[in-house]
Simulated scan of single mutants.
Amino acid sequence: MADGGSINEAARQLRLSKSTVSERLTELEYACGTKLLSRNSRQLVLTDDGAAFLERARRIVAETNDAKEDLARRRGDVSGPMRIAVPRAFGDLHLGPILYDFMNRYPEVTVTAEFDDRISDLSSSFDAIVRIAPTPLPKRETEQLTISRRTLVAAPSYLDLYGRPETVGALERHRAIRYMERGPDDWTFKGDLERVVARVSPRLRVTSCFAMRDAAIAGLGIAWLPTFHSYQAIKVGSLEILDIGVDPDVTPVTIAYHHGHGPPKRLRALIDHLKLSFGDPPYWDDQLIVSHGAQLT
């Protein structure tokens, strides 16, 4: 509740009913003999006693987990529970299948994996958070797993009808398929000296990269997509990578975990398994670099 700011969020993360979480909070406050959280109209806020209690409780939990990990290391075990958060589409397409292979290899590991784009990066309830973002998380160790390249793509049918843009400025005359978010309708690219901006006119705005890819394949316009979404369509010719004279957008795919003496053995094993399975370059880019090297490097 301290991390999520509400009983609803705590209930979602704990997979309990709201009433159960509320009852347990009341029982804890009664046992402690003090109020741990104050409630206002919008969220729960830690009291001074609550903040002091939380700090001690986190230390106790951390020490208990360290003791368990020490026993596991002594036995040489890769076992125990993990709770991880993963961006939904990346989890569905890539991390999920690799995770299932990892769990077959290590049958004593149990995993709770939340494939969800709405999870707070600062939530302490996860052992690890997989992110596609340019900056590391504060107060967490971060390791890079691979990279995500984002390129402009369109269907041959669209390009045959409206032409192939060759410059950033030419994009402004084309139809765009945009991820729906706050801010202006533009695409920003890394130029030779500074960022360059194309003001585009979206024909379709959606909140799903799957829908963006499928709309591009249907010929509705140009989409700016990670290659881990578009690589299969590019390989079979349903989409083409556009070369407008700028480098592709490259963002690290990282995994963040709690500070300490390194990740637990089971998490270390998962990180190594993911790195090896993704490859360098990642397997979804491997064949694309061979055939579209100029646009991807």
Rank of each mutant, 00 (worst) to 15 (best):
A89C: 00
G96T: 05
R105M: 06
P107V: 06
D117W: 02
K68E: 15
G96P: 03
G50R: 06
L71R: 14
K68R: 15
M103G: 04
V86G: 00
R74I: 12
R56T: 13
Q43F: 10
D49F: 10
A72W: 06
G50Y: 07
T47F: 10
R39E: 13
P107N: 07
E69K: 03
A89S: 06
R42I: 07
H94F: 02
I60R: 13
R39N: 11
L95R: 00
R118S: 13
P107G: 07
A85V: 00
R74A: 14
A85Y: 01
D49Y: 11
A113L: 07
D77R: 10
L95P: 00
D48R: 09
I98N: 02
R83Y: 07
R73P: 02
R73E: 14
A113F: 04
S79E: 12
A67Y: 13
D49S: 15
V61H: 12
G91D: 05
R39V: 08
D48I: 08
D48K: 11
F115D: 01
P87M: 03
A72H: 08
D116G: 04
N65F: 06
I60M: 12
R118A: 11
F115E: 05
A67W: 14
R83V: 03
F90C: 00
A72Y: 12
R58M: 12
V78Q: 08
D66M: 12
Q43C: 09
A113T: 06
K68N: 13
P81N: 11
A113W: 05
E108L: 14
L71F: 08
Y106I: 01
D101N: 07
D66T: 10
A67F: 15
G50L: 05
M82R: 03
S120E: 09
E69P: 02
E55T: 11
M82S: 04
D70I: 06
S79T: 06
I119D: 00
A85H: 02
F102M: 04
R59G: 08
E63D: 14
R59C: 05
D70L: 13
S41R: 13
D66G: 08
A62Q: 12
D101E: 14
T47W: 09
S79K: 09
T112P: 00
D48T: 12
L95H: 05
K68G: 12
V111H: 01
A57Y: 10
P87D: 03
R56F: 11
I84W: 01
A67D: 15
G80R: 07
E114C: 00
P87Y: 02
E69D: 15
P107D: 09
S79R: 12
D77I: 01
P81E: 09
A51D: 14
D49I: 01
Q43E: 14
S41L: 10
R75F: 09
P97D: 03
L44W: 13
V61N: 11
I98L: 10
V111R: 01
A51R: 15
A51V: 06
G91Q: 01
G96I: 01
G96K: 05
M82G: 03
A72F: 08
R118G: 06
D49G: 07
D70N: 13
R42N: 08
I60V: 15
V86L: 01
V109P: 01
D49R: 11
S120W: 03
L99H: 02
V61M: 13
R73F: 04
M103W: 02
R74E: 15
L93A: 04
D49W: 07
Y100R: 11
D49T: 04
R58D: 15
V111G: 00
D116H: 03
Y106A: 04
G91F: 02
F53W: 15
R73Q: 14
R73W: 05
